[in-house]
Design a protein around this nucleic acid. Structure first.
Lengths: 169, 169
DNA sequence: CCAACCGCGTCAACATGGCTGACCTAAAAG
DNA sequence: CTTTTAGGTCAGCCATGTTGACGCGGTTGG
């Protein structure tokens, strides 16, 4: 009897635990994107622009195909937003030296400034959460989040440099 | 000299740490939604349908306005997907007893089955991540995620309405 | 009791950001 | 020299968000 009850309760907690995880992800992601979205809206951009700006800032001289591999969208989708960002002077493209088909992307000063502005609230939000939770919790957070990724994504965090640097250049 | 270097390095680590958090969120959310999205695509639904099904399953007899408050979308947006789900027999509506203007929403058997199917891969993903990371890490994960929410969302986890004790998590 | 408010639905129009498919150029690689 | 690759472009479709306007019926307070 006690065994049965304990079993049921454990199942309940487990179900509840998993649901909590799902919801935390939903709510956190939504809040996480809401503030940049507002700024973006004012200048006629959307979340897709932010992602491009972010990753170009993260990996200067990234190529279009590397960016596509990170974002996992089609080149037509990327092209729309990337084109606007280039035309409006947030990103510049330089022809690759080794392979002149490549367009190496990097933020202009204007792009750096926008990136900083957009990501500032997100950095603050994360910094606040890290501070409130403590170093040990942050380590746990990272472990769990890593566990949710597919191998391909996980690899981006483990090596000293992103995969692109390790492969042929 | 050593002091300066340490200071710089610490700043770098902090920046790196925050970026890691941002990216974990981005990648994890994308992977988290990708599998249900595939199933949904096959039956002509999208992610929005999943969210509605999920929260109606989570809170049976939820009203339309409560659902709107959770999803934070306009009633026109909700109406589109909710209408389809009702028409196709995944959700049924019953007039509120206390307030007959309300439509209390709940999953039909068909709806429960779809919810289970859609969320199964997500549950597995989270369960796997929790298992790999360990109980302590899960606790840290939850702390950090909670810290990223706004007060309104956070409140949903601390004192939810029914059937939830003051279990320390 | 009735006017005002509220819960919900609906029509119309628009924006964003995904998608497929077709087709192009120029550079690299065999 | 032919094929493959990196990148771009046009055209159209779809899902899902938005605003604004309006209607219906139920609730509620003066």
């Amino acid at each position: 009897m006690a065994d049965l009850k304990a079993g049921v309760n454990q199942l309940f907690l487990r179900e509840e635990e998993l649901r909590t995880g799902m919801e935390l992800l939903f709510y956190a992601y939504r809040e996480f994107t809401s503030e940049p979205d507002e700024i973006l809206g004012e200048i006629g951009f959307g979340r897709a622009h932010h992602r491009v700006i972010y990753f170009v800032g993260r990996y200067p001289k990234i190529t279009v195909s590397e960016l596509l591999a990170i974002l996992k969208i089609t080149k037509q989708s990327l092209s729309r937003v990337l084109g606007e960002l280039v035309r409006q002077g947030f990103i510049d493209q330089q022809t690759g030296a080794r392979d002149r088909r490549q367009r190496l992307l990097q933020l202009t000063d204007k792009g750096v400034e926008l990136e900083r502005q957009l990501s500032e609230t997100q950095r603050q939000r994360i910094a606040r959460a890290y501070r409130m939770a403590g170093a040990e919790a942050v380590e746990g957070f990272r472990k769990v989040m890593m566990g949710m990724l597919d191998d391909g994504d996980r690899a981006k965090f483990t090596p000293p440099a992103p995969a692109r640097l390790a492969t042929k250049r």
